[in-house]
Simulated scan of single mutants.
Amino acid sequence: MPERIAMAAGLPPISFVAHQMRTGGMGGARDDFEEMIIELANATMPGVRTIAANPGDWGIDAFAGDLGGSITVWQSKYFHPVTAATHQRTIRESFQSVIKQAAEHGHTVKMWILCIPSSMDGPTTNWWDKWKKTQERDHNLVIDLWDATQLTVRLRTPEADHVRRAYYEPFTAAPPDIAEARTVLEVDEDKAASFDSALFVRQMREAGHLELDGAKRQFFNADLVAREIAHKGVPSEVNALVSTDATLHGVWETRFNECCADDNLRKLHSLVWADVRTEHPQLPKQLRLEVAHAWGLVHRLVDNRKAGWVKHWRTVAATHRETDPHSQQPPHEPPTDDEESPWTPTAR
């Protein structure tokens, strides 16, 4: 027999303990439950109203109808987790108060609905059934019970869906706005040509790469990002860039060691690029990096003599520093606040 897999289905369960959890205790739960009943009653029968306690509420939590004629009354009682014999007196007194106030203020009660967030135990159910029949006969009205079962059924109806979601579904914050990713800029021909003497280009040539225009564009865009962040000096952005550099350096280092062990360095570049693409969604969102920027940051690591594409990359870097006129310039680190970036972007 195939193994069964538990799966969530339908609407989430309704727990009336939510009123206690939200308000921190039974006192707050009573008021919160009453508010829910008022909203649920209004969803069931539009036009439901309440009476402000000034000084009393006439024994009415919510009502529908005309106080100059006949009304339907909803009475909420937060009895939880079970409605037992100790609650019978409270129920009787609430009903008697409504009937008394109706006689004093000139309206009649045609229906009285008791709302409780639990089920009655056996003895209380037996008492309720008998008491209900007696009161209906004596006062010529209808008495109904919205207990936990009835409330759950009503809360799951389409017209009450907004009440259910407001009181019994976990709050889910709206996803944060994700800033638009940075534009990937073109590199003009002169600037691209100036990169021919850069260390990151030499390292790729040492590894046998022939086409390098894409790498130059990636480096150019990543370098712009790094210089902008350094110039602005926003600590959170600076830290995010440092974290990103560390992550990408770790990606390169892991693959470099694996390829050296397997004697397969010719695949190093493509493996690192695939890993960077996979890692890209986890990079700090505030940097707004496209994948091209992330690849360019790896080129910056190479240009700053922290990585390479051949086993002897450190020797290549040291030789480049000694012999190439371009390498006599400082590596492509972010400028200080009083420096300006030498790169002039050309928009696509």
Score class of each variant (00 low, 15 high):
residue 314 R to W: 09
residue 208 G to M: 02
residue 229 I to S: 02
residue 119 S to N: 13
residue 268 L to K: 13
residue 214 G to T: 15
residue 54 N to A: 14
residue 154 R to P: 10
residue 69 G to S: 12
residue 70 S to V: 04
residue 302 V to M: 09
residue 47 G to Q: 08
residue 309 W to F: 06
residue 321 R to I: 06
residue 77 K to T: 04
residue 306 K to W: 02
residue 20 Q to P: 01
residue 231 H to Q: 13
residue 8 A to H: 10
residue 203 Q to R: 09
residue 170 P to M: 02
residue 60 I to D: 03
residue 86 T to G: 15
residue 131 W to F: 09
residue 173 A to L: 09
residue 289 L to M: 11
residue 138 D to H: 08
residue 276 V to Q: 03
residue 89 R to D: 09
residue 186 E to P: 00
residue 33 F to A: 05
residue 233 G to K: 04
residue 313 W to M: 03
residue 10 G to N: 03
residue 286 Q to I: 12
residue 7 M to D: 07
residue 313 W to N: 00
residue 157 T to S: 13
residue 175 P to D: 02
residue 323 T to L: 15
residue 21 M to P: 00
residue 191 K to E: 15
residue 103 A to W: 12
residue 49 R to D: 09
residue 338 D to Y: 10
residue 205 R to E: 13
residue 291 V to P: 08
residue 251 V to L: 15
residue 290 E to L: 10
residue 85 A to V: 05
residue 316 V to K: 07
residue 219 F to P: 04
residue 297 L to F: 07
residue 308 G to D: 08
residue 65 G to Q: 01
residue 34 E to Q: 15
residue 62 A to D: 04
residue 69 G to L: 10
residue 83 T to D: 04
residue 122 G to D: 12
residue 16 F to G: 03
residue 201 V to C: 14
residue 48 V to F: 09
residue 13 P to E: 14
residue 67 L to V: 01
residue 41 A to M: 04
residue 19 H to K: 05
residue 223 D to I: 06
residue 193 A to K: 13
residue 325 P to I: 03
residue 255 R to N: 07
residue 67 L to A: 06
residue 136 E to C: 10
residue 292 A to M: 14
residue 28 G to A: 12
residue 287 L to G: 04
residue 31 D to Q: 15
residue 77 K to Q: 13
residue 245 D to K: 07
residue 32 D to Y: 07
residue 48 V to P: 06
residue 152 T to N: 07
residue 168 Y to K: 01
residue 164 R to A: 15
residue 36 M to I: 09
residue 154 R to I: 05
residue 309 W to A: 06
residue 224 L to T: 04
residue 348 R to V: 03
residue 77 K to C: 08
residue 128 W to S: 00
residue 288 R to H: 06
residue 139 H to G: 07
residue 225 V to K: 03
residue 94 S to M: 03
residue 242 V to K: 06
residue 190 D to M: 13
residue 257 N to Q: 12
residue 152 T to W: 02
residue 299 H to V: 02
residue 246 A to M: 11
residue 183 T to N: 03
residue 203 Q to D: 07
residue 34 E to W: 01
residue 223 D to E: 11
residue 166 A to N: 02
residue 112 W to E: 00
residue 123 P to S: 10
residue 94 S to G: 12
residue 313 W to L: 01
residue 15 S to I: 09
residue 259 C to M: 14
residue 265 L to K: 02
residue 89 R to K: 08
residue 75 Q to M: 04
residue 237 E to I: 00
residue 247 T to V: 02
residue 335 P to I: 05
residue 287 L to N: 03
residue 141 L to R: 04
residue 60 I to H: 03
